[in-house]
Amino acid sequence: MELIGAPVHAGEGRGRLLVLERPLSFWGGVDPETGRVSDPRHPQYGEPLGGRILVMERAIGSSSSSAIMLELLRNDVAPAAIVLGSTDAILVLGVLVAEELGYASIPLIDVGRNGFERIRDGSGGRGHVRAGAREAILRVALA
């Protein structure tokens, strides 16, 4: 399956898909040291984000989520790419700062609500995100 989206931040990443059943606030919801979902009320509680293609409808919550995104990249436990159902200005800021500090960067793409609905059952499949300046694509091999 292929989904075309809008690039939020350019780059390339591959990994197993992790689809979040509910929106997640990285601040208070992800452990910056282990990269695992740490909000016990979240359906994906305990799942590691590291190396995954993280698919989520939207990011929510505190603007301090940018700081957690930076920690994940510094600690090498960040997702390989983030695929969103709506655009985001908080997580991407953490990625921009990580780049400025010389850490690894990851792509973020916006596949829209419809795109998110098409892959919401895709957990466990393998994904490949390529985001350029104008176009972004997610290729998925379903499990």
């Binding site: 910056p32 301090s64 700081a67 920690e71 990249l73 500090l101």
Partner: peptide, 14 residues
Amino acid sequence: IDGCLYHGDGGVEF
């Protein structure tokens, strides 16, 4: 500035 609150070493580094 709200970013002066410690959330991790990355914020200090920046």
